[in-house]
Amino acid sequence: MKSVLTTVVAAADRAARFPSSSDLESVQGSLQRAAARMEAADKLAGNYDQVAQEAVDAIYKKYPNGQGKDIDAGTQKDKCKRDIVHYLRLINYCLVVGGTGPLDEWGINGAREVYKALGIGADTYVTGLTALRSRGCAPRDMSAQALVEYNTYLDYVINSMA
């Protein structure tokens, strides 16, 4: 799994060298942020269902006639939750790992092509995840530093999928 640590070691090994000072600085930076990431991961894991529901609610609040036309809005809301939960789970893994590896490998790499080929838009993810980024509040939800870490990965998903 790609992370700051594995990237540094792999790069050093490819060149048959010891990690450089700047390598160690980036590892140090990642380790220093680890406590904040673990806090964010813990809060998200404990509350992911409600967080996903907030994203879905934001989608349908914005455009009440949204996705799917032949069923009532209450039923529709449940349906795109599968994908939102999937991305929240990958964000959680990224917080644990301290890098975008889990999102890249399991969520993004290859997905843009599939979406384009099948004509699937990222509209609902962008709306839902943007809402999550806007509603996150420190210290109500988590510490300010943890929120920074969490929002970084939300932004990463939005930017990569959109």
């Binding site: 455009y63 009440p64 006639n65 949204g66 996705q67 099948l118 004509g119 699937i120 609902t124």
Partner: peptide, 14 residues
């Protein structure tokens, strides 16, 4: 034919 079922996600938007 092109699969357009996901194109009109927000039919309320003009």
């Amino acid at each position: 034919t092109e699969d357009r079922r996901f194109f009109n996600m927000f039919p309320g938007l003009t």
